[in-house]
């Protein structure tokens, strides 16, 4: 029998595996607590007091949202209610959503809840990506609310015969195959008018989430977007 070395001792490796796994798991759990705090949804109070949250409260649908380069962060970030010029949101400028900009916390939360439920039950994620995760058969929806195609000078409002982007989006969602933009079409998923409103609220809310600059250069080349 040759001398035994610690390097060839199963017990040693079994314990090492246990310790390493335990350590990694504890670290992950600790980071999870920290992250959970940072990505918890904000409130209406936060928006009114100008508190920046990574995931703002549902009443963010009352505000104008933009996605601009932040010199401080080195990438694009969502600005809520205007840009204060110092890399932060102003939380001032409102934007009407289906004719109103005074949704209460309960109303906005109910819309977002309906929209999030809709996003799952209509199986959005098995064609689209949301925050970049999902399938790759249709465009990413992370910043869909801000997509040039839906803006006032974009193609979609004219096509659906609506004068605001939320109405155009809701109309498209209800009758997608009536407004084909490409050979690859979105199927009719039986989305009702109320569900469509919820889904658009969900999309608007998602566009206000701080995604660390993803997607990069969003809508940078506007000429191509508008077919110029």
């Amino acid at each position: 029998m040759a001398k035994t070395s610690v390097w060839s001792d199963n017990r040693f490796w079994q314990r090492s595996a246990g310790w390493i796994t335990g350590f990694a798991a504890v670290l992950l759990i600790w980071l999870t607590f920290d992250t959970a705090g940072q990505i918890a949804m904000g409130t209406d109070e936060d928006l009114k007091n100008g508190v920046t949250k990574r995931v703002p409260g549902p009443t963010v649908i009352n505000y104008k949202i933009t996605y601009e380069m932040s010199d401080k962060r080195g990438h694009e970030v969502p600005y809520i209610g205007g840009n204060d010029g110092k890399g932060g949101s102003l939380f001032q400028e409102k934007q009407k959503f289906f004719g109103r900009d005074d949704y209460s916390e309960e109303e906005a939360a109910a819309l977002l809840h309906l929209g999030k439920l809709g996003s799952q039950t209509k199986n959005c994620m098995n064609c689209h990506t949301l925050l970049g995760n999902g399938a790759y058969y249709a465009p990413d929806l992370t910043k869909a609310w801000l997509d040039p195609a839906w803006q006032d000078d974009g193609t979609m409002q004219a096509m659906t015969g609506k004068s605001t982007k939320e109405e155009a989006m809701a109309e498209f969602l209800q009758h997608p195959s009536t407004y084909p933009t490409h050979a690859r079409m979105m199927p009719d998923l039986g989305i009702t008018a109320e569900e469509a409103k919820g889904l658009v609220a969900f999309l608007k809310h998602m566009s206000s989430i701080d995604t660390n600059g993803f997607p990069r250069n969003f809508g940078k080349i506007r000429g191509a977007v508008n077919g110029k």
Binding site: M1, A2, T4, S5, W7, S8
Partner: peptide
């Protein structure tokens, strides 16, 4: 290699 070699040494001789 070092570790595998050690185990083989111990178990096959």
């Amino acid at each position: 290699y070092f570790m595998q070699h050690q185990v083989h040494e111990e178990n096959e001789h």
